[in-house]
């Protein structure tokens, strides 16, 4: 806990809400609560991993922070300053960038790699001569492990891993402090995935970057993150230091999520006790009352339907949003479907 107190906060998100209006009848709309009251802090130089199943709102969180959507409500502070006015947003966008999931659709097929990488520079007018632009492209390409001779080629001439490197080079073009990585390795093969993860780690060490690393692969997130946040139906249910969350999960959802991960080790898998959740994630249009997880939670009781749990500190820098985390930990409440 004291460790983070000393650290400087780079990004602070408070009560962030992102609702999308969905037409549910003639002239009738219902808000889809993609991100519902999410608060967290990211410290300078760290990596916060954001995990959750598809549809839980992790990508929307990243995109809303990046100002790709107009947020419904909430407060985003970067380096202690609000991101509200036009100037502030413009400034924020130079200091922040994003790496996308699909290296195939996130690069314009009609632009050369050099132009793709330099586009953020063009948009923000960050160079004074063509020579400077060219130098910057070369520097960025060598930074991510691409040969600068390839700057005149097109994206289709590269493999998936190389394309993702192009995406990273583009994200680094404005010398950002903070990068939002939205599932940057999930489209890649294992051997290439490891290359890209190492690139991210090296860049962080050399350039002092801060990451919000969004992914559904828990082993990858565990590897790269200092802290992990777990989302379920638009809310953060647990957040804390990686080792704490991974080794001592407190929220029943985190527990079952971790127990569902297949570990590449036959002996571990044989001994592993699994909590198999029943059913699917409920639709966010029709989220359960109270705790959103209660419909699948093996510990749920009537109280869970009435009260919305809020994140509370459970010690050692870990916050959990569950009414009964203590009872579950002490063994007062037991699950009914352990296999």
């Amino acid at each position: 806990m004291s460790k983070n107190k000393e650290k400087e906060i780079l990004l602070e998100v408070k009560n962030l809400k992102q609702y999308f209006p969905i037409t549910t009848g003639f002239g009738k709309t219902t808000p889809l609560k993609a991100v519902d009251d999410v608060s967290f802090k990211i410290y300078k130089g760290e990596t916060l991993g954001l995990v959750g199943e598809s549809g839980c709102g992790k990508t929307t969180t990243g995109r809303t922070i990046m100002q790709l959507y107009k947020k419904t409500d909430g407060d985003i502070k970067f380096n202690g300053e609000h991101v509200e006015t036009k100037e502030q947003i413009k400034d924020f966008k130079i200091k922040t960038s994003m790496v996308f999931q699909d290296p195939y659709s996130s690069l314009d097929p009609r632009m050369t790699v050099g132009d793709i990488i330099a586009e953020p520079l063009d948009v923000h007018h960050l160079y004074s001569s063509v020579k400077e632009r060219q130098n910057k492209i070369e520097k960025l390409m060598s930074l991510v492990g691409l040969s600068s001779e390839h700057a005149t080629r097109y994206a289709h001439e590269f493999s998936g891993g190389q394309r993702q490197r192009i995406g990273i080079a583009r994200a680094l073009a404005t010398d950002p402090e903070f990068i939002i990585c939205d599932e940057p390795v999930s489209a890649l093969d294992v051997s290439i995935q490891a290359q890209i993860i190492n690139t991210f780690e090296d860049l962080q060490k050399n350039l002092g970057l801060t990451y919000l690393f969004i992914a559904h692969d828990i082993l990858v997130v565990k590897h790269i993150s200092d802290r992990i946040a777990v989302m379920y139906l638009g809310k953060i249910v647990e957040i804390g230091d990686t080792d704490e969350v991974y080794n001592h999960p407190k929220h029943p959802y985190t527990k079952s999520l971790l127990s569902a991960v297949p570990i590449p080790d036959p002996n571990t898998m044989m001994e592993k006790k699994r909590i198999v959740l029943e059913g699917d994630i409920p639709s966010p249009l029709n989220a359960p009352s109270g705790c959103a997880f209660r419909t699948r939670c093996p510990y749920a009781s009537e109280e869970c339907a009435q009260k919305v749990p809020i994140l509370e500190n459970v010690g050692s820098n870990q916050d959990v949003a569950c009414l009964f985390w203590k009872d579950i930990q002490d063994g007062i409440r037991t699950p009914n479907n352990l296999v």
Binding site: Q193, I197, L219, P264, D265
Partner: peptide, 23 residues
């Protein structure tokens, strides 16, 4: 061997050893 070394371990945060090159 390379494939197994490129997956993140469950125990520690040792640096991954990727297989070099392209598919």
């Amino acid at each position: 061997k390379g494939l197994l070394k490129s997956i993140p371990s469950t125990q520690n945060k040792k640096k991954l050893i990727p297989i070099q090159g392209n598919p």
